[in-house]
Design a protein around this nucleic acid. Structure first.
Lengths: 210, 210
DNA sequence: CGGTGTGAATGCTTTCACAGCC
DNA sequence: GGCTGTGAAAGCATTCACACCG
């Protein structure tokens, strides 16, 4: 099986999301161009990595294409095994994310929570167990947790990351603006709103230069 | 002034963040390679876009490099003008972001909040005015708000985006998993945790293929 | 026709490798 | 000697353009 370039991967996942918002049954690469701003030939090239090859002369079936993307990346289908996740930091942000039941019908399931504040882990009502931060690496190893969502305060981040690394985590979703130092086989997605704003603002500045 | 490639821009902003975490006075491209995983020559090339050119044979001054990056992209300095931002959606996520005083000493300042729930905007105590969602496009235009942080529920997103577009917003930070359709001059950063998890997971799958 | 799928060409980005500098 | 800055080469990603298909 051929390995898919990262930009393509990211677009396909967006595409999957976009398809789930669609009402029509069929869709063409030109339609998708209008919805995304990516060129239709780029979209066709991206889709060609999936070996779907049923689009000829009709456009794609919205439902099928969605499924093909999901199965290619093993995301969001009932027959794929659940992936254990944890959330680290149960302050306002952490609990907000929990309650906005942010993992809908995904294969990602939160199975543990951690916080340095022992009070919090006693008071909070959750459908999964909560532990003090000191148990982090032990519990992550034992429960076979693969992904961590980091919503702790900046001061705690680096210590937490060291623990996660030693527990052989596969990926980290980082809400903080701290830059994480991890070995190259651990994947980090930085989604700090400040960094996002800086990127947007920099793009605006950069565009008005030329 | 030369326009900077987007990948370079993103790395430089991360670098700036990373530099702020450093304690030493000087730093070499090789040090930065160890901290980031990016090759030292890539880092040198990135920095060369800044026309800094004071690093020869000594490595870079941590402080100076940080400043040069900031001024290049006009981020986070006192002498740059404040950029007006708003937050749309004041549920648990929206208010969590507010309280975690998430815009530290940046030039991004939240000057208005919006929610469809009129109760909420009456109860919440904030340092800036709150409005019902129906006032969105009017207030955004009038207050010259350039950036929006979108923390509303999925069902409301598309309507909100249409309003923001008509009010000529410059950029949107999107916490929802919905894909936004906007004209190409509006910049969107998607920071949905679900999408982030999918990207990580897909990368893991993709790597184990080969 | 109105669409896809894909070699070949183009355009970007990254790495190599080394001159130049302290 | 150690490190930067940068032409030139290599490696990727995107677009072009057209054969092919229903």
């Amino acid at each position: 099986m051929k390995t898919i370039p990262e930009p393509t991967q990211r677009r396909l996942i967006q595409l999957k999301q976009l398809l789930s918002q669609q009402t029509s049954e069929k869709i063409t690469s030109k339609d998708l161009e209008n919805l995304t701003g990516w060129s239709s030939s780029l979209i066709r090239r991206d889709i060609s990595f999936l070996n779907y090859r049923k689009g000829v002369s009709n456009g794609y079936s919205v439902k099928e294409l969605q499924q093909v993307i999901c199965s290619c990346f093993k995301i969001e289908s009932e027959n794929t095994k659940i992936e254990n996740c944890c959330i680290v930091g149960l302050g306002r942000l952490g609990t907000a994310i929990l309650e906005d039941d942010f993992l809908g019908q995904n294969r990602f399931k939160i199975v543990a929570g951690f916080d340095s504040n022992v009070n919090r882990i006693e008071i909070l009502k959750t459908s999964f167990p909560l532990y003090p931060l000191s148990h982090l690496s032990k519990v992550v190893s034992k429960m076979n947790i693969k992904f961590a969502v980091l919503t702790a305060r900046d001061e705690e981040i680096q210590k937490i990351v060291r623990e996660l690394v030693s527990a052989k985590i596969s990926g980290i979703v980082n809400y903080s603006k701290e830059v994480l130092s991890v070995p190259s086989d651990i994947i980090v997605e930085n989604i700090s709103p400040i960094i996002a704003l800086m990127n947007i603002s920099a793009s605006v500045v950069n565009k008005n230069k030329e």
